[in-house]
């Protein structure tokens, strides 16, 4: 489903963030990505939805080489990948409901259908009662759940999460890990970069450890 083939990434003027990276993710897997800070986890995840482009090698997602994708085709790639960003990227001037609505509005889903799907997604993460709230009024754990609801509302086949449990207490982080497990159980392919390896260990199909831009084991 996702294949990295001798991928290298060098940021302009920087050192190599990734080098000679080759591995594949099968459909239905739940991969945990770990490694020291600066190992290249975020960079690796950003290559999948073409937020960053590799400077070497090929990243193939659903049979498409993302590295060579035309700019105009990138939006359609992204619509099939649910993303949870390290810094969440919520819109703080929009309600919880409207934040989750955004991917559906972008995809042009009819309003009534979209409303139903937004509520279903909020229900899955336990935020249905807060749909009218503004994101600032939410706790850290709730904000993270909001980010998850937004990532899954368009029912993507792939879910990519960058440190979704950072800054959360263990109990809340455990809830989040279980949520990813639930999505994986219904067939979503999941890639999670995390320091909370222990929490995800019971659910993962495989662990990939990065060290200085290379696979360590």
């Amino acid at each position: 489903m996702i294949r990295f083939d001798r991928v290298g990434k060098r940021y302009p003027g920087g050192i190599a963030a990734l080098a000679e990276l080759t591995f594949a993710v099968e459909s239905g897997e739940m991969i945990v990505l770990s490694g020291h800070s600066g190992a290249g986890k975020s960079t690796l995840l950003k290559l999948i939805p073409a937020i960053e482009r590799p400077t070497q090698g090929a990243v193939v997602v659903n049979g498409q080489n993302v590295a060579a994708l035309k700019r105009a085709a990138v939006p359609y790639l992204r619509r099939n990948i649910g993303m949870i960003f390290q810094d969440q990227k919520l819109l703080f001037d929009r309600s919880v409901f409207d934040n989750v609505m955004l991917p559906l509005a972008i995809a042009g889903v009819a309003l009534r259908d979209a409303g139903r799907r937004v509520r279903a997604a909020l229900d899955k993460v336990g935020l249905l009662e807060r749909e009218r709230a503004m994101p600032v009024a939410l706790s850290g754990g709730e904000q993270q759940r909001l980010a998850i609801a937004r990532a899954v509302v368009a029912r993507p086949a792939i879910l990519v999460a960058d440190e979704p449990t950072a800054h959360l207490d263990d109990a809340t982080a455990a809830d989040i890990a279980a949520m990813f497990h639930a999505f994986n159980q219904v067939g979503v392919t999941v890639l999670v970069a995390t320091h909370h390896e222990a929490l995800f260990a019971p659910y993962m199909t495989r662990r990939v450890v990065l060290s200085r831009g290379r696979i360590a084991q």
């Binding site: 939805p49 937020i51 105009a72 939006p75 359609y76 790639l77 992204r78 619509r79 993303m83 960003f85 990227k89 919520l90 819109l91 955004l102 991917p103 972008i106 995809a107 937004r150």
Partner: peptide, 9 residues
């Protein structure tokens, strides 16, 4: 920026 990350053209 967020819209673009979520697949907006």
């Amino acid at each position: 920026e967020v819209s673009r990350l979520l697949g907006a053209t």
